[in-house]
Design a protein around this nucleic acid. Structure first.
Lengths: 131, 131
DNA sequence: TTAAAACCTGTAGTGCGCTACAGGTCAAGC
DNA sequence: GCTTGACCTGTAGCGCACTACAGGTTTTAA
């Protein structure tokens, strides 16, 4: 059940060990199993939960809001409220994507502008390109 | 030509006055016209440039990288290099959008999961929803 | 004439999300 | 038995992108 050391959990999730401990301190990760010597052992579910946290955080939810969601997860009868939060976040992510797409279009315009104006690359340019 | 006060530039761009001055200190905005008393007057081009900066910043380019790009803009014969930077950034934005879309799908799955499991909202729930 | 508004410079502080460090425990291998 | 390494806690520090503040000048309006 609880089979991963903190190092392994870090490797799997991509978070650093320090960040895992930080999340736990902040209350985002809870009830991690401990060996008698106090070492953490993460279960498969812990890993899944961590990946969910990463999803939420990387899609723009601040730690504080995520904390509020997690708090709800530890209270019974808050299903609707949690779902509302998720839906609000989904909407925010959609808005974010739309913004990124608008920025992308603008950047592409600028690239096109350069392409029209720029003389062909010389061999020297190519050599300098360092790719 | 140079017609906007810093306050107006802030209103138009959505940046705060302090941020405009900060960007100037950092070298992202240059050659802003000054009245004899030292007050800034932004031109239409300044505004456009500021909006470009915001586009780059909000699409994920760190100030430091943006600074490097701006530095190139003040050096002749760097067109190709600038274009390369823009293309690299465009690629990064595309990757970012793809990530956001994956996160979005995951969030939607979770919402669907809740929807399947959750009993219908009671009137009390609706009243608590505070929308 | 004086008070308020808008601006200036320079520097210090803030909030976020980690990240690093100090000082310690414990188990395994040489 | 001693070192190494992975872990622990608690606290301090960092990097980024602002943001606020102190202390000043100048213009405008009452």
């Amino acid at each position: 059940m609880a089979k991963y050391t903190i190092q392994q959990a870090a490797e799997i999730s991509g978070l650093k060990i320090e960040a895992l401990r930080y999340y736990e301190r902040e209350g985002l990760i809870r009830d991690v199993h401990r060996l008698p010597n106090g070492h953490r052992r993460y279960s498969e579910q812990d890993i899944q939960w961590i990946e969910f946290l990463i999803c939420m955080r990387d899609s723009g939810m601040p730690i504080r809001d995520l904390k509020r969601y997690v708090d709800l997860c530890y209270q019974k009868g808050t299903g609707h409220e949690r779902c509302d939060l998720l839906e609000a976040h989904r909407d925010a992510v959609e808005v974010q994507i739309a913004k990124y797409e608008a920025y992308l279009a603008r950047i592409e315009d600028k690239i096109a502008w350069y392409r029209e104006r720029l003389p062909r690359r010389t061999e020297q340019d190519e050599a300098n390109k360092k790719e």
